[in-house]
Design a binder for these strands. Sequence first.
DNA 1: CGAGGGATACACT
DNA 2: GTGTATCCCTCGC
Length: 210
Amino acid sequence: MNYSDYFTNRPTDEITRDLVGRPLIYDNEKEKLGGYIVEAEAYMGKNDRAAHSYGGHRSPANEGLYRRGGTIYIYAQRQYFFFDVACQEENEPQGVLIRAIEPIWGIDTMIKNRSGKSGVLLTNGPAKMMQAFGIHDKNWNLHFLSDSPFKIDLEDDHRKPSQEIIADKRVGINQSDPVWANKKLRYYVAGNPYASDMKKRNYAKNNGWA
DNA sequence: CGAGGGATACACT
DNA sequence: GTGTATCCCTCGC
């Protein structure tokens, strides 16, 4: 399976759900940083009120969504950066936002990149994950995954099975269109401490893995 | 521990 | 000037 095929040929929400449990690695020539994806959100394109491409809106900042599936779309907001991957064919502006990982590789370096913050605070949010990787710019925006330091492991044998994957509404969406704001397009490992805003009382045994 | 609000910079009007 | 696919500190329990 290559990235082009993986990020096309089926609905974006299905792709998003399938990404949960897969390794995401940022390999900056010095060291591999990363972990298992525990939370991701789907953005369904022109009709999706919450998507940056809603209504066909297109600008230099959201160009990545319009590229072919497997293209990296890095977006800046406030002083933070987010990591998306475009889905579907060129000019079909859908994508998936990787929101959180359970850190596995290069944890010490990631803690340094996060100014000493460790534990769940290391990577339990989209901008925290990027900080942990030490990314503070849009350098890799518009690059195809295979031409970048980012790797998403598509080997099914390497996908960590979850006890349960929850579908819920996306985080931080403006409620002006309740239909789209409440659609269950966020997928996360039930009870995993690194899923954003996971309450301690909801922590699951074995972090929610099967 | 968890809810709530302020900080902060960038893209776009 | 306005709004934002967030983070983190403060404060009340």
